[in-house]
Nucleic acid binder design. Structure first.
Lengths: 338, 338
DNA sequence: GCAGCGCTGGAAAGCGCTTTCCCGCCACGC
DNA sequence: GCGTGGCGGGAAAGCGCTTTCCAGCGCTGC
């Protein structure tokens, strides 16, 4: 039992070459090794079933093949799509993805980063949306610094200004364009189901939406805040229905929240879109088959993950790069003319 | 730039103790260290911002804090739910999850296992459904052996008989119970949208369903196979509609496939459930708000992930343990009396 | 013909940590 | 008084790999 792992030394001995040569053959150094030695080593390694010890390599090279990915909740399709993009790129590059989940607790983000630093991860993609909470922000900033000083790279999805590479979806612009599209449908009174007030993504989408309404000379919307989840959308919608709002169209800052909201509306007998139009944001693929089909702002989520991974893996210059990704308004059956 | 990482040696020197003592203090060995030395080390480590080098630890201890998780597609809510369960448990145990995706290519599973072995992962949860393909099966079995011989533990979700710990959902029983429930609604002619014929999960659910129909003395269903995805369900449903089948109720072996199927039906003007009843399997949380609500067999997916992680992390005996998880038939609006 | 160069192979010094020894010290028992 | 354990501390030997440095050798160029 527990047959000791085959080591490079054994391969070298068996093949009758030095450790150095074996290492050079099996792990592609710049140095040349003669044809026959090389082949002998390769064959022996194959025969013995040699698998290099990644920890030892990481230690010797002072860099590992780990890439971190930090999300709030992997069940949330928003994150799982991004995760798919990140893993695809990482795996193509021969790297391995470490998945960390925060459960939406901001302080977990810094903890995870520290763990990732311990593992000498060569890069990290931070996909969890940033909050405006002071304390956790500065703790996080410190961890990011420590991480980059150690030679690691960090990319964020969704928020700039951390001095890192960033993939920025057009939250503001998307919200604004959506508002415009909805006003063009004739709606005059709007409500917004917003996320927690300290979430940057939620704020941006809301701000953009308000700006769009203002463009059209329409009164600001009623805003009800709720958690950034299906249940948050449900609760917010319920609260909205309980109020005396006369809105004919509601914008949930997230598709997932919109799903919850639609459930609430259904429960209360409010028909969508006849009695109330509703729109979301993200265009989650898994949710595209819902009835009525949800109007939303499409974000290329997987692609965003790929871009983030790309940024973080290709060494790049010293300056923080920012890639903007546009959202595209998609009007479907959940929004009607008014 | 790139300030060298603080090492244990530096902490030890700074604190005026030996390397051994510092190690003992900071990484809890069995040995005692006197109060004042201990405190001095702790304080110095804190001041210097010491973070242990996980690779070095792994190398020295010959075991890492990595747990592997292998899925087909993290975007698929089935897998992301399981992933959530696994990560929760792993993180609570202070371990780190490595996410590998196969993209549904069976050979990737063995590759990933080999990578995980290189990283000396202490355990792996295989969530991707097993196929019946000979070649990849034996390659996988070999990798599993290699992995366990090296001291790692392996657990599977959904398939037994690999000599590993396993979480087995009641695919067969669930399919059977569902069939019974549907026949009780009065349906006499059934169709099944099955997965690829070599997927064990798909086969089991189908077999159970057939058995259930047989119990009720009903003719075997028409079976149309398709990919284990939304698009697979869509395509299979289209094929079914194109045939001369007179089925009044269709069972898609997966909720995700059922979603695709419902889209197909809608497109062809077939009303659910008036013209056709439809049921799925899994009860994916994200899909619970669809209209009409999908009848299905509920599986506690996150819990299954937790159980698998639990099995794989708690050393356990030598024997392969099997935990059975029952599916529960949930009839909703997508199935009507006939 | 010989200095010098480029190239390949090997010896060995780490990488940062854990852990086994070993040593000195103290309390104890006879 | 001295032998015995037990215990806390340190020196040092690895863990498996990479990489520098050096040795040897066959060539080229003057």
């Amino acid at each position: 039992m527990s047959a000791r792992q085959v080591t490079l030394a054994e391969v070298a001995k068996q093949a009758g070459v030095s450790l150095a040569t074996a290492s050079r053959v099996l792990n592609g150094s710049t140095r040349q090794v003669s044809e026959d030695l090389s082949e002998r080593v390769l064959r022996t390694a194959e025969e013995l079933g040699y698998v290099p010890n990644a920890s030892a390599q990481a230690l010797a090279r002072n860099s590992s093949s780990l890439v971190g990915l930090v999300v709030h909740d992997i069940t949330d399709p928003y994150f799982s799509c991004i995760a798919a993009g990140v893993t695809r790129v990482a795996e193509e590059a021969g790297l391995v993805v470490v998945l960390g989940t925060t459960g939406r607790r901001p302080e977990r983000e810094a903890e995870l980063l520290s763990t990732l630093r311990a593992h000498r991860a060569r890069a990290v993609v931070l996909a969890g949306s940033r909050t405006t909470d002071r304390a956790s922000q500065s703790r996080l900033a410190a961890e990011i610094d420590a991480f980059t000083e150690q030679g690691g790279r960090v990319a964020c999805v969704s928020q700039a200004k951390l001095g890192t590479d960033t993939v920025v979806p057009g939250n503001r612009a998307g919200g604004r364009a959506l508002a415009r599209a909805l006003t063009e449908l004739g709606h005059k009174k709007f409500a917004v189901l917003g996320g927690p007030s300290d979430l940057v993504v939620a704020r941006d989408r809301l701000a953009g939406f308000k700006a769009g309404l203002a463009d059209a000379g329409i009164a600001p919307p009623v805003v009800v805040n709720g958690a950034f989840t299906r249940d948050g959308g449900y609760a917010a919608a319920m609260e909205l229905l309980g109020s005396k709002s006369r809105a004919t169209c509601v914008f949930a800052v997230t598709d997932v929240m919109a799903m919850g909201a639609m459930a609430a509306l259904r429960e209360r007998g409010v028909r969508v879109p006849e009695d109330m139009s509703i729109a979301g944001f993200d265009d989650i693929p898994t949710l595209r088959d819902t009835v009525p089909a949800l109007s939303t702002v499409r974000l290329p989520l997987e692609e965003m993950g790929e871009i983030a991974a790309g940024l973080v893996l290709d060494a790049g210059g010293d300056e923080a790069r920012t890639v903007r990704v546009a959202g595209e308004v998609v009007l479907r059956a959940s929004t009607a003319h008014n």
